[in-house]
């Protein structure tokens, strides 16, 4: 342990002090097509390409890391990375603890997905990912809340009958429904919650926020953001 610690400390100490312009991005890596770890072990998806593009435009050197969803905000505040880029919806509740950039994905409706058309999603058991806007919405509704740490487990809960329905972003569920061969279907009406997806930042990082907002605005203006959305979400993706 001592040797390892010493080695780590040495690496940490000798890695140079020109640290000012490196921006560390953190994502969840389990939320396709927004972000996921691909088969080569690299972070991929819409947010990977978008993140690299805004870093290039803002002339920032960016590095990527993954962090569990549940502890993603505390680790931002603690300074373990500088930006959360993980399909995080902008909400007033989160704004009390962190700051957000302008949205880079428009407000997207959330939908219920179930294994049968007459599923009781209004008062039955609904699976959601922990600490999401969907979890807050279900907790306030009449349904029984069933929380999971990862998005994949919420859908698996519906497949194996543990939950009556899963409630999540349309864009996450849509490919799963399409590829399920009829085993999964959207039930009920879409629900509009959340204020779009933004980059999560520390409230004190106003300079970084300015740079990123500028880059996002430029991508919205020249249409390249819409091209990227089309690439990852298809024709059903929400455009600016």
């Amino acid at each position: 342990m001592k040797k390892l610690l010493l080695a780590t400390t040495l690496i940490a100490l000798t890695a140079g002090y020109a640290a000012a312009d490196v921006v560390r991005l953190a994502t969840e890596g389990a939320y396709p097509p927004f972000n996921f770890v691909d088969d080569t072990g690299e972070i991929a998806g819409f947010e990977r390409e978008f993140g690299d593009e805004i870093c290039k435009r803002a002339a920032l050197e960016c590095t990527w890391s993954t962090n569990e969803w549940d502890s993603i905000i505390p680790n931002l505040q603690s300074g373990n990375y500088d930006v959360i880029i993980a399909g995080m919806s902008i909400t007033d509740e989160r704004k009390q603890v962190i700051d957000f950039s302008d949205n880079y994905y428009p407000p997207v409706p959330s939908v219920y997905v179930a294994a049968k058309a007459d599923a009781n999603f209004a008062s039955g058991t609904v699976a959601v990912q922990v600490s999401t806007i969907q979890a807050a919405y279900i907790a306030a509704s009449g349904a029984t809340l069933l929380e999971f740490p990862t998005p994949d487990e919420t859908v698996a809960a519906v497949r194996n009958g543990e939950a009556d329905a899963v409630f999540a972003d349309f864009d996450y569920l849509n490919p799963l429904v399409k590829e399920s061969g009829g085993a999964l279907m959207v039930v009920g009406d879409p629900v509009a919650i959340g204020g779009g997806v933004g980059l999560g930042l520390r409230q004190s990082d106003q300079e970084l926020k300015g740079k990123l907002n500028e880059a996002i605005a430029a991508m919205k203006a020249d249409g390249s953001l819409n091209v990227l959305i089309e690439k990852y979400f298809g024709a059903e993706g929400q455009k600016f």
Partner: peptide, 23 residues
């Protein structure tokens, strides 16, 4: 709620290799 030290005092510093972060 935020924690701030000077950039050079981060462990590991932001420029460190991914291996340093893992270690």
């Amino acid at each position: 709620l935020e924690f701030h030290v000077c950039p050079a005092a981060k462990v590991p510093v932001a420029t460190a290799s991914p291996f340093a972060f893992q270690a």
